[in-house]
Design a protein around this nucleic acid. Sequence first.
DNA 1: AAATTAAGTCAACAACACTGACATAATCTT
DNA 2: AAGATTATGTCAGTGTTGTTGACTTAATTT
Lengths: 165, 165
Amino acid sequence: MKSYTPDRHIETALTEKDAKELDIIELFFFAYRDFTADPDMILEKLEFGRAHHRVLYFVNRKPGMTVAELLEVLKITKQSLARVLKQLIDTDHIVQIQGPRDRRQRELYPTRQGRRLALELAAPQSRRIANALEQLDLSDRTVIERFLRAMVNPAQWQQIDSLPK
Amino acid sequence: MKSYTPDRHIETALTEKDAKELDIIELFFFAYRDFTADPDMILEKLEFGRAHHRVLYFVNRKPGMTVAELLEVLKITKQSLARVLKQLIDTDHIVQIQGPRDRRQRELYPTRQGRRLALELAAPQSRRIANALEQLDLSDRTVIERFLRAMVNPAQWQQIDSLPK
DNA sequence: AAATTAAGTCAACAACACTGACATAATCTT
DNA sequence: AAGATTATGTCAGTGTTGTTGACTTAATTT
């Protein structure tokens, strides 16, 4: 457990000499940690979690999404989605409508309440981003967008592009 | 469940008209999802999770960190940390050494094995970032760093600054 | 000597992910 | 028309990572 006669251990810090881009690795960690903390606080009161947020977000961004599409975007299993989706339906945030072409499909739509919550959750995140962008030149917005897009696996760019502008 | 006579629902997509910075909100989600997926695959083989990664990362970045400091950075509870830390100690990735000034404290240090794993986990993340930066001008690196830093709560900037360059 | 602090531990619990198996209804293929 | 495939839903069991609250031990501070 503890040792007075110290075990062999490393005292030098890991730095840029050992691995590149460490500063951005940790900035990304801290930024995402705080970015998700704001909506988490709102969700807590409603007894929802981050999983509910993600589902609600994408259903609002692309109403009519099917269950299969949602699984692709969130990269989780059907069983993981099922519970969360059921709760959002039971609490009248999302409705399922039988697919018009293919009646096996269930198209997912937000209700008015679901839209309201999605907006409420987006608000602090928008504010945080807008505030961060204010510290930069207007033209730098494109740089951020291009960087973040390049961080995504190219195979998934199509997912991003399929969302409405 | 499903309804032939459709319930009241919203068919229009949530767009920039409704909430600002939606594109960056979702880019951030996708980027972080893929950013964490690479190390997750390595961790799986070792039966470690993302929590182990975070602990190992920061102990390597700042050897000698105490348990209390780590809790502050990770923003989790002592009990959450305990399990994960115990596993990292039992598998000889981290050692604890009694604090020299204050003997109640336990300073955390990586072992050689712990350093090796930290480097292995950082490698794909470095590569992903370097690749994303290649698509931009050299000077844009600063823009990314300033943006990500501005996304973090100012109260936590000190945590970032306390890590060695 | 008493109070506080750092760390560790116990028990119980919850959210969210997983796997594998199976059921139903609708559509597509032959 | 029969059979295969697809989209969704559901059941049972499991694991990781987080939570709270209560308590202990040892060391330091007051």
